[in-house]
Design a protein around this nucleic acid. Sequence first.
DNA 1: CATGAATGAGGTTTCATTCAT
DNA 2: TATGAATGAAACCTCATTCAT
Lengths: 218, 218, 218, 218
Amino acid sequence: MSDPPGAGPRRRRLSEAERREQILRATVEVVARYGYDGASLGRVAEQAGVSKGLVSHYFGSKDDLMVEAVTGSVRALRESIAAQLDLSAPVPEVIRAALRRAADLHRTHRAELTAMAQIVHGLRLPDGSPRLGPADYEETHEAQRRLFARGQDEGSLRPLDVHVLAVVYQGAVDTMLGHAATHPDVDLDRFADTLADVLLGGMAVDPTDGAPGRSGCG
Amino acid sequence: MSDPPGAGPRRRRLSEAERREQILRATVEVVARYGYDGASLGRVAEQAGVSKGLVSHYFGSKDDLMVEAVTGSVRALRESIAAQLDLSAPVPEVIRAALRRAADLHRTHRAELTAMAQIVHGLRLPDGSPRLGPADYEETHEAQRRLFARGQDEGSLRPLDVHVLAVVYQGAVDTMLGHAATHPDVDLDRFADTLADVLLGGMAVDPTDGAPGRSGCG
Amino acid sequence: MSDPPGAGPRRRRLSEAERREQILRATVEVVARYGYDGASLGRVAEQAGVSKGLVSHYFGSKDDLMVEAVTGSVRALRESIAAQLDLSAPVPEVIRAALRRAADLHRTHRAELTAMAQIVHGLRLPDGSPRLGPADYEETHEAQRRLFARGQDEGSLRPLDVHVLAVVYQGAVDTMLGHAATHPDVDLDRFADTLADVLLGGMAVDPTDGAPGRSGCG
Amino acid sequence: MSDPPGAGPRRRRLSEAERREQILRATVEVVARYGYDGASLGRVAEQAGVSKGLVSHYFGSKDDLMVEAVTGSVRALRESIAAQLDLSAPVPEVIRAALRRAADLHRTHRAELTAMAQIVHGLRLPDGSPRLGPADYEETHEAQRRLFARGQDEGSLRPLDVHVLAVVYQGAVDTMLGHAATHPDVDLDRFADTLADVLLGGMAVDPTDGAPGRSGCG
DNA sequence: CATGAATGAGGTTTCATTCAT
DNA sequence: TATGAATGAAACCTCATTCAT
């Protein structure tokens, strides 16, 4: 309608990889903003600045698009965390550092975090059962169990069930990030430190490990 | 038309309150089974054994129905927990007992728990923003903060930020219940005990409070 | 927009059976007019004077609608033919009479005939293979084979393969009706008589059976 | 890009005529397999091993492609029949031989036969009316009428309306081929002979003309 | 009170066609 | 010459909602 002259080429041609990346980014933003159900392909296309047909062209179906959006977000988050963690440090220090890094994620990958939660809750198989489930977390939990087991081997963690520890730890991270999403004014670094105090207080043999202001038993 | 006697399951004439209860129960079950988006009014009506029109008649809109389903589930859960908790006991004991009670909830109110999570994630305002948010949890968090503050007053809990403690505690409960929903074979009572060990280990002054098998510092 | 006042109730309520009949009639007309592909549910709804949603409501899917349209048309055609045939007459007379009746069908059931051909050619399974095939004709062919066998028993038909005869006979009927559909000016009764002359000349022992103006061999 | 030698099945540079032929062949196969509606340009291009753009480039629109596919198939079929028919033989012999040839077509040109029927039924003008109709058969019918008229002149065919004879004959051929398409196990040569017995029995003055096993009147 | 007939908006998806490269 | 990226129209279908009965 308006179509300002000289406003640039209407139909830019990008490589497949660029378009896919662009559409996935738009998907994450729209899902984070409108929720899973509110994320229609029309809104995704509009956000990406492309036609509806192109989204289907590259991703086949809405479900496939959503699965790819989750996959991509998971990879991005994992890389972001791993890049700044020294996994060879004593386990309590790793845990405390990881919690601080997770707090950073809320600033750097807020949309991905929200979108992932939405898609995991919203995406279903045709029969109504959830499409993304525990199996998709297993890889992450497995890595955490190995970390906790190493802590117990090295004597820095108490001999609690590593399955439970992994679930509790991951749940605490999710809780913190979910809380941050709805309470933008909270000081997340302080939150992370307090959370580390609590968790390490319960998990570590010497709760003062890596903790700046903890008094211990004595 | 003539409704011959003995012609099958006669539809009883129910009072308004009974009908509403019947429909809300069906809503919870359908949402738990099919997710928020998959819970069409048609499926709810079918599950309740009434006509679609009646659902609208009693609840106005789908959104209103969902809000009532959450409200009712929250009330039911709170009553179920409160009924068996001695809130005047020392706070660490209250926490440990509450975690055990929460584990029971997974057996007695599984559908409500799942449906609540679905509705909270799925229900949105017309502009796309979430309809149920932090404000709806505030009442619960406030009660927990008072509990934790009492624990600090009585000297059984360490002086950590009660806001953080409330969020962490509630998040741990949600995590445990969410984990149970996807891992039906886990021993949830043991999980609750281990979780209590971890949380009280981090929150309590004397981590052995109320704990059966905890060794303490020495 | 125009909405003339007093133009009647916008939303008449009919019984399920009436609506289904009305929609099936519209389907047959639209398919006959626009072909199978051109028969969108929108056009069917418009022709029936109902909303698009109602068509789906009563027939589930477009495929189901089309199958029902064929089924209903077949039944109507069979009843129309059978009602006026004396099947106990000598077989050559039955054949000649049936051809005359078929010619009548072109006047009384033109839309059904055209629509059936369209649907049979157009309706496919998801994998692309035809959905309506020989099995759907089998009942008709079987009845014809019995008729021809009776003719051979009574000595009025020559001992040719009854399977072939049934196919040839039915094909001739279809040919005649298809020809009439595209040549509205042809005298179909004369056509049917000539066709009977040809077919009975080839099938009957005494080709003059039931034929008004045939000279025979002598 | 660089097109390294031996890097797989190199795509040969073809002349325009070769490309067109290749695409038309693919069109016939896809239409025969998936029906008219199921024959998207994408599938045609895939079957032909070319890009979608090229199909449009050579044939303009889908309708034009389909028309050309029919035209080409008609020409191929006519040439195939004519090549092996001695049109100067007595007309009954020509008819019997033509029916045998038609039976061969089912083996040699099955896809063309199926595709033609699909396109004739499916291809429509923008207003919904059929695009291919009687006029497109006229040339064939005209040739057949001349043949039948010659038969009547030479005294071998009875004086029936040649228009009707042409329609009946062509319809019988189509019937036989259609039947063969859905009943792959039928002995088509026997079918053709029986069909010739029936048709010549009705059309010929002396039904034994050219018939191997026919007993005549006596 | 209760039903279910009816609507119409909106979603996903397919596809013929155009055109930059 | 040939590709395939991109568009936009139209299709089918679902569903919340209204309302005659």
